[in-house]
Design a protein around this nucleic acid. Structure first.
Lengths: 368, 368
DNA sequence: TCAAGGTGCTAATACGAATTATCGAGCGGC
DNA sequence: GCCGCTCGATAATTCGTATTAGCACCTTGA
């Protein structure tokens, strides 16, 4: 296969075929130079007019300005963003990098809400979004850094992903690449600008609700370690229980079937299960009901966030919602703040999660 | 200012930290010029080595090549994609323009499947995607052309939208902007490269199934005109009925309530309704059932494509599925084909729709 | 010994816009 | 008539890479 896109003067662009050549037969786009020649001024003047410069050092006669603007209007000239970026070092384009496809096919469309927020904010700020889809996959995930990395085409970059690669993060920090991480937020060769969900607070709040309902035997189901998102939930869980003077129990889920987990819960006399992974909550709840248990009567189940894996259920879990759209929005805010070196921008943010009332929390039954 | 490894109070450190400066304190990246000075060669040589040029006109001594490569490796030099693009006049970036937000919040997420296909193909081809989100809204929709249009950053552009603006399309053609329209496909000041769904064939197939089931009184519900997607369906409908020698009936939906439509259908003795708009099918079916009619026993309903407006129902309509993902994929293929001026690329394509068996088609009851 | 040919590299320039130092013209004041 | 000043615009340079013409040097061969 011939290398696609190898466009030199020898082929597409300049050869002019029916499909990419314009009606006048010319193959070059209009440049500032063209405008300049048309209006009898210099390229510099065109640039100055375009940028509305009219300060102390630079003055353009209104008449000239009008002539130039008119030519621009009639030719439909638009500045080449690439040249602009090279010369001015910015182009109001924001990169978006994910470690998985941005538009996943699965139902558990994890990135979508983030993108909604990112797009909303970008649109409001007049920025375009560059999806770094070309990053080659190696070792099962996309890599930011490779031989033809186009990150720098954008002014800065939003990183989306449940597990960002630590080394790549480090390299970004080291190279001074402006970026914001959505989710991941530990240091990597320096402080990392991030927008995360406030899992500790949200988890603690949920746990306190369970405590208020009368539960004393609560267990945390999940890893409780590894990614910050997990460790943070566990931390919130611990905090709330410690406050109340109850023992925090931890039931690791790795390599255990829902049945084993449920058995373990019941054997330990747990009345409220706090599940890290939504899908685990679904499995446990279904199994419990199949066994004739009442959820939440016999067992309350609290879900720490929306599904990240596809999980279909009609159960309305009590817990919280991860503010993904809001996080996307704020990520763009942080990024543009960094780019403008705005001292008022807080570059590390935790966004509160939204509590979900749901129907899986009830006071524990009093053991006879 | 060295980055501390342990932060007791991270916030204290944030103040005054330059978040876009790299660790060495220098803001400048390594350039080919730097490499050249380090190795005692010229910038041109570095470029030649980097591009692996070693043909008739250009020769580099293996020893020199190694020296340069070594310097590149130790400095971690990466070519600036911006400068590269400026010189090469292409950048493997494909623009994606939609007339509505790319990531709609509504449930009827119309663009998503297209985007999935577009991204898949772009990833395979090593292209990045530029979402033209900064297009300002005027007159209720986004405009491609405006004073700070960034379309030209991309090599070419995929146009998504149920109703592309004819004038803007014309301008794209006139200016010789490489683009592909997904959906719309009439000429606009010249032939328009497009990827569309094969509505005529799909509709005719559905109608033939109804005919095979014994229906003879079929009616087309919908505009049947206007956007090509509507006109095409109508055409397929007509073709299949003409073939079979039955009268094609048309029931325009504009300004008519579902009740009126159902009344009209029944009054005309129609046994199978072929609905242009999924949502109309839902409304009619529900109403019919409320009135005690059996769907499909008393009335078969055939849906010509997936919902474009949000419509929730548990009815499993017989009809066809629009191959949106496939269309997105092929749009990228066409676009890159145009860019490469590949003579083998067919720049106007109709993709077959996937038949859906469903449960809303049954033989008509024999009238006593 | 001199032309022919090959080898290895560089100087110069293009790409398109942004920016700065500078220049000429016009004008008023003394 | 000259200085100083403002106004209006331009030439020249920058950004980092790609490309091409051509130069200097070497080796052959006759």
């Amino acid at each position: 296969m011939a290398a696609p896109f190898h466009l030199t003067d020898a082929n597409a662009y300049y050869l002019g075929n029916d499909w990419t050549q314009n009606v006048t037969g010319s193959r070059r786009r209009v440049t500032q130079h063209d405008i300049a020649r048309m209006t009898g001024v210099s390229q510099a003047t065109v640039s100055l007019v375009l940028n509305g410069r009219d300060d102390g050092n630079v003055r353009i006669a209104p008449e000239t300005r009008e002539r130039v603007l008119h030519a621009i209007r009639t030719t439909g000239y638009v500045a080449d963003p690439v040249a602009r970026r090279l010369a001015a070092r910015h182009n109001r384009i924001l990169g978006v990098f994910t470690y998985e496809p941005v538009f996943p096919t699965g139902t558990g469309d994890f990135y979508h809400p983030f993108l909604v927020g990112i797009e909303e904010c970008a649109e409001r700020l007049g920025c375009d979004l560059l999806l770094l889809t070309s990053a080659p996959v190696s070792g099962g995930r996309r890599r930011i850094f490779h031989d033809d990395n186009r990150l720098r085409l954008a002014d800065g970059c939003v990183l989306l992903g449940r597990s960002l690669d630590h080394d790549e993060l480090t390299r970004l920090v080291t190279e001074g690449q402006p970026f914001v991480s959505v989710g991941r937020r530990d240091n990597a060769g320096g402080p990392v600008p991030y927008v995360g969900a406030d899992y500790p607070t949200a988890t603690a709040t949920v746990v306190r609700r369970a405590l208020a309902a009368g539960h004393t035997a609560l267990a945390y189901l999940g890893q409780g370690a590894g990614p910050e998102s997990h460790a943070d939930r566990m931390r919130g869980f611990r905090t709330a229980l410690d406050e109340a003077g109850h023992t925090p129990r931890h039931l690791p889920t790795t390599d255990r079937s829902p049945a084993e987990l449920l058995d373990a819960l019941l054997a330990a006399g747990v009345t409220a299960a706090v599940v890290e992974e939504y899908a685990d909550g679904v499995a446990i709840a279904q199994l419990a009901r199949e066994r004739g248990l009442d959820v939440p009567g016999d067992l309350s189940i609290l879900a720490l966030g929306d599904p990240t894996r596809p999980a279909s259920t009609d159960i309305d879990f009590t817990g919280f919602r991860i503010p993904r759209r809001e996080m996307g929005w704020q990520a763009v805010e942080v990024l543009t703040g960094l780019l403008e070196a705005d001292p008022d921008t807080v570059p590390q943010r935790l966004v509160p999660c939204q509590p979900v009332d749901g129907a899986t929390l009830a006071p524990p039954k009093v053991t006879p």
